[in-house]
Structure formats: structure tokens, C-alpha cells
Design a binder for these strands. Structure first.
Lengths: 208, 208
DNA sequence: ATACATATCTTGACAGTGTCCACATCGATG
DNA sequence: CATCGATGTGGACACTGTCAAGATATGTAT
């Protein structure tokens, strides 16, 4: 059953999303073009408009998928981590950077507000704000657990979580968008992430 | 001497750079358009090409200016800081975030590689890589001073500096690009920066 | 099954963009 | 003053996002 290029694509929405990720992977976020996405998906330049209101809506869908995958990754890392609550903090921190390395296209999109400036991107309302998306919740819960175990001083958990978040987010951003000579391989990036996160967690830890 | 709109602008290069910053401030990085910049500067859509090879070159010039201002800001903050080497670390960390709040357009540009993808952006070669630009050097020197005073454990200074850099960079990025509800005013942002940086510096500090 | 309604895809058009080209104008230098 | 290079203008091209109108396939009601 060779692909006879039927008039109807089957699941063009999915095809467009995948094509968009491919385009970003090849040409970067700047090279993301609706027409190029349509070309890669093998349809006319206007077909996407039957699945997305505009370019921003397509991006919004990718961002939405990204945040969902991201939350799952963080939750999985937290569940799989062993050791003390602080050890778990280190693990989810490294998982954050690893997600950025494994899904650079989604990661870049997720934190680029100028690309998702469409008012009608409904799926994003589910996240309300990105910082309070469930990925952030995992950090909050990990910190609360550490506080319960007496490993982290009581205090504004939101502030502590923001500090931890900032550290891994900044590192991921610098590695991805800053020049590549910070870390040229994923292994190198993860090693840096571990060192960096351990310092931050040390800062969060309660003094004896 | 009312502006008679002479044929020659006087310093169009400067005018274009200022216009570009204005455009970004109004419409964000995505709204930065060569033609709009020319319009704001009051010249034809092609005049910029006599001062910049292409759009990326204009952005590169802005980035270059940004890194220069940034390095000065960091150096000044370091020199003006009082107290121990750790106190100075906190000060330059807050200064980092403050720079991002005061110069959001430049800051966004500085860490957006897709916008400066011009091969012939010569002025950037002076910085070689952004991480080793003199702004980063200030962090390195501050850490070395802290190590000399015995406040920070000996070790790979580059790694420690990257951790500190990541934290403030991530925070600035989240505040600027992530939704504004993290911090709605500059004062709020600086307060968050202080809390966050103190945690990171605590992590860098040597245990007794 | 036949006819209609709907979802999907296509072609064509328009304004706006970055960039190249040829031409116009100014300022300095012989 | 004549000339030349630097600076600015207008027009053109391919490309983009988006809208409008028409074509085709799928599903549903009779």
C-alpha cells in the first residue's frame, strides 16, 4: 500500500506538528515558517489553516505538548530518584537540563513569549501561567518534602523553588542558546548540570 | 534651527541603533523590522544598508553595545560593593538582574543566537564567546577573591562561576520572558534577585 | 443508493518583509 | 570648479502570513 498521496492526509494536525519540530531542529526557531512546515508535510501552504488558527496557534500547540512532556519528565525523575529529599532535588534538576538537551526545539519554544502571542491559544489556559505549570509543582513538592525531613529550612517555599528553577533554567538556556562551547555534548552538559545543581542544593540545605 | 530634514542624516548609524531599541521596546523582539527601524529613523527602507550589511549586522551591533554596557555595569557593581567577597558576589548577582530589567531589549538580544546569525558580525569577534566576555570575567575574579579569602572552597572556578551565572541568568530570563507575574515591578524583581542570589552564594560558601 | 452538508485541501491574491539593483544627491578633495 | 566616494532614494524580486473562493472527499439523512 504505497503512499498514494490521498486528498485527505489522515492526521495532518499531527503531521504538521512533527514537521514543525523537524523544521526547528534543522533551521532553528528563526527558520520556522508555516509554508515550510506545510511543504515538509506535503500539503499546500494553506492546509495548516484548517487545523490551526494561525502560526502562533501552531506554536502554542507545540508549547502545550512541550509542557506536558516536561511535567511528565520531571514527575518521573522525582519518582525514580533515590536517596534523601536533597538527592531527589539534584536528580530533578539534572532532569530539567536533560529535557532541554533532548527536546531543544520544544524547550526553546516554551520560553519564547513572542512566538506564542496568539490570544486564542486555549490549550495554554490549562497551564494558566508557565511557572505554575505542573513541572514547577514537582519542584515545590520536592522542596516541601525536604523541609518536612528537616533538610531545608522552613520559609517561603515559592522563593526557594524559584531559586532552584532559575539555576537549571539558566544553565539550560546558556548551553542551548549561548554558544555551544559551554558544553558540546549531552554528557558534558549533564555533568555540568550535576555540579551546578549540587551547589544550588547546598545553598538550599539547612546548616547544622 | 528647525529640523529641515537634510539629505544626509548626520549620524544615521546611531539613529538606527536607537530606533531599533525603541522598536523592540514597543513591539518586542519579534516586531523588530528593518523597514520599521528605517521608518522610525525617518529614512528610506534601504538607507540602513549603507551602515549595516544586513538585519543581523544591525542586531550584532546592538548585541555588541549591550555586552559592553553589561561588562561596565558588572565591573561598576563589583567595585562599588562593600563587605566580604561573598557580599560582593551577591551585589554583582543582583546587578545582573538589574541590568536585564533596565535594558530588556539589549538583554533579550544578547542571548538570542538566531537573531545574530550573520557570519560577518566582526565586532562580536572581540568578545570571542559571550560566556568569556568581560561580564563573566567579573564573576570569575569575584570568586577568585572569595577563594583567596577562604570563603569559597578551592576548585574549578569556571564551574562555580557558571553556576552563579546560570542562577541570575535564569532568573532574569524567567522574569523577562516568562510571564510577568513572577515579578511585576523592578523593585519586586530585585528583591527576588537578592533572595535567590543569597541562596546560590550560600551554596558556594565553604562550610566551617 | 442518492443527495446534501461538512470537513478538508487547493489555487489565487494581497500586504509586508529582507535584500539586490540602478540612480540621485551631498560633502570633501583634487 | 569638477569629480568621486559616501550616503540616501525608488523600484524590483522572492519570500512570508493571511484571507477569500473554489474543489474534493467523508459522513449522514432520507
Amino acid at each position: 500500500m504505497l503512499e498514494e498521496k490521498p486528498y485527505h492526509h489522515g492526521d495532518l494536525r499531527r503531521g504538521l506538528l512533527d514537521a514543525a519540530l523537524r523544521v526547528i531542529a534543522e533551521g532553528g526557531v528563526a527558520g520556522l515558517t508555516l509554508r515550510e512546515v506545510a511543504r515538509q508535510a506535503g500539503v499546500s501552504h494553506n492546509a495548516p489553516y484548517h487545523h490551526f488558527a494561525d502560526k502562533a496557534a501552531l506554536v502554542a500547540a507545540l508549547v502545550d505538548e512541550g509542557f506536558t512532556q516536561f511535567a511528565q519528565t520531571m514527575q518521573f525523575a522525582y519518582d525514580a530518584a533515590e536517596g534523601s529529599a536533597l538527592d531527589k532535588m539534584v536528580c530533578i534538576g539534572v532532569a530539567y537540563v536533560q529535557f532541554a538537551m533532548n527536546h531543544p526545539a520544544q524547550f526553546r519554544l516554551m520560553f519564547r513569549p513572542e512566538l506564542r502571542a496568539s490570544d486564542q491559544c486555549l490549550p495554554l489556559q490549562a497551564h494558566k501561567t508557565y511557572e505554575t505549570s505542573s513541572g514547577f509543582d514537582v519542584v515545590i513538592r520536592a522542596l516541601q518534602a525536604a523541609q518536612r525531613e528537616g533538610l531545608v529550612a522552613e520559609g517561603d517555599t515559592e522563593h526557594l523553588a524559584l531559586a532552584a528553577w532559575s539555576t537549571v533554567h539558566g544553565l539550560a538556556d546558556l548551553i542551548l542558546d549561548g554558544n555551544r562551547n559551554i558544553a558540546s555534548t549531552t554528557e558534558e552538559a549533564l555533568a555540568l548540570a550535576r555540579v551546578t545543581v549540587e551547589i544550588m542544593v547546598q545553598g538550599l540545605a539547612k546548616r547544622p
